[in-house]
C-alpha cells in the first residue's frame, strides 16, 4: 500500500506538464476567452453608445415622441416582414427539401441540392437589386388582382403601390433568400432519418407519402423547426434586401400592398445612418440593441423548442 489517500489522484496526472503543452493550451484557452470578450464588447459598446438614445431630445424621434413609440412601429415592421417571408418560404422549402431527399430521381437531386446550396450564398444585396429593379415592377398585376378581388382582407386593403415597393414585395424577396437556407438544412435532416424506419413503414404497405408522414416527419421535426428558426433569424436581421425594396414610413399597418409600409429596424438604421447627427446615431444604435434582443429571443426560443422535442423523441 503505497498510496493511501484516495480521491485527489488526478493530481499525479497533472504534475508534469511540458512547456509546449502549457503554451499551446494557453493559446487555445485565450482564443475562447477572446470570443467571450468580443461578445461582451458588443454589449458594452452598444450600450455605451446607445443608452443616450433612449432619452434623446424629443425632436430626434419625430414624428414619435419618445424612444419606445419610435421603436414600436419598427419592431412591428421587422416582425411583419419576417412573418410574411416565413409564411411564403416554409411550405416551399419543405416541399423542395422533400423533393431532393425523397422525390427527385437521383440524377436530378444532387445537382438541385448543389444549386440550392449555391443560392444560399448569393449576397443579400444582389437579392435587393433584383427585388428593386425586376420584381417590384413586375408585381403590379398581382397586387392589382389582390386589391380587386381580396381587398376585404386587411392584408390587401390597398390601394396598391404604383412602384410595387410594398411590404409584400419585401416579404417575397426575403422569402426567396430564406428558402435556400431552410431547404438546405431540412434536406439534410430528412436525409438523416433512419432508413430502417422508412423501410419498416413501406413493409407495412404504406405509400410514399404515408412513409414520409410516419417515418420521416416525426424524426425531422426538431431539425426542421431549427431550420425555420434560423431562417427567421436571417429574415429579422436582413438589412439590404429590405432597404432596397421597401418604401417605408413610420406607420403600423397590416396592409401589405400599399405604398406606406412600416420600416424594419435594420433597414431604418441603414437608410438613416449617413445623415445622422450624434443624437440620432445614439437612437439608431439603441434600436440596434432592440434588434439584437429580438433575434436573441428568437434563437433562444428555437433552442428551447428543439431541446424539448428532442427529449420527447428520445422518450
Amino acid at each position: 500500500m503505497s498510496v493511501t489517500a484516495p480521491p485527489p489522484a488526478p493530481r499525479a496526472a497533472r504534475a508534469v506538464v511540458r512547456p509546449g503543452d502549457r503554451i499551446f493550451a494557453g493559446i487555445a484557452r485565450a482564443a475562447s476567452l477572446t470570443i467571450m470578450l468580443a461578445l461582451a464588447g458588443v454589449f458594452v459598446f452598444l450600450a455605451i453608445e446607445g443608452l443616450p438614445g433612449l432619452s434623446a431630445p424629443e425632436n430626434i424621434y419625430a414624428p414619435a415622441e419618445d424612444f419606445w413609440s419610435y421603436v414600436g412601429p419598427l419592431v412591428f415592421g421587422t416582425i411583419l416582414a419576417a412573418v410574411v417571408a416565413l409564411v411564403l418560404a416554409v411550405p416551399f422549402s419543405i416541399g423542395v427539401a422533400l423533393f431532393i431527399s425523397h422525390y427527385a430521381p437521383p440524377r436530378i437531386a444532387a445537382p438541385v441540392a448543389y444549386v440550392i446550396d449555391l443560392l444560399a450564398a448569393v449576397p443579400s444585396v444582389v437579392f435587393g437589386l433584383w427585388g428593386g429593379l425586376a420584381l417590384a415592377s413586375s408585381i403590379r398585376p398581382v397586387t392589382d388582382w389582390l386589391y380587386a378581388n381580396l381587398d376585404f382582407i386587411p392584408f390587401f386593403a390597398g390601394p396598391p403601390s404604383v412602384t410595387g415597393r410594398s411590404m409584400l414585395t419585401a416579404g417575397i424577396v426575403l422569402a426567396i433568400m430564406v428558402v435556400p437556407i431552410v431547404t438546405a438544412l431540412s434536406r439534410e435532416v430528412f436525409a438523416q432519418t433512419p432508413r430502417l424506419h422508412e423501410e419498416a413503414a413501406m413493409a407495412l404497405g404504406a405509400t410514399r407519402w404515408e412513409t414520409i408522414r410516419l417515418a420521416v416527419f416525426p424524426y425531422a421535426r426538431s431539425g426542421v423547426i431549427s431550420a425555420v428558426m434560423l431562417g427567421l433569424g436571417r429574415a429579422l436581421g436582413e438589412t439590404m434586401a429590405v432597404a432596397m425594396v421597401l418604401s417605408a414610413a413610420p406607420v403600423v399597418t397590416l396592409n401589405l400592398i400599399s405604398d406606406t409600409n412600416p420600416a424594419t429596424i435594420a433597414q431604418n438604421i441603414a437608410s438613416n445612418y449617413k445623415e445622422a447627427t450624434p443624437d440620432k446615431q445614439a437612437v439608431l444604435i439603441a434600436t440596434g440593441l432592440v434588434l439584437f434582443a429580438v433575434t436573441f429571443a428568437v434563437n433562444f426560443a428555437a433552442r428551447w423548442v428543439i431541446a424539448r422535442s428532442e427529449r420527447k423523441v428520445s422518450r
Binding site: 503505497s2 498510496v3 489522484a9 499525479a12 496526472a13
Partner: peptide
Amino acid sequence: RVEGKVMVSGQSLYDP
C-alpha cells in the same frame, strides 16, 4: 485515475 504503484526499473511510474 489509478491508485497503487507501478515500478519500472526502480522508478515509480506515477510519481509526480
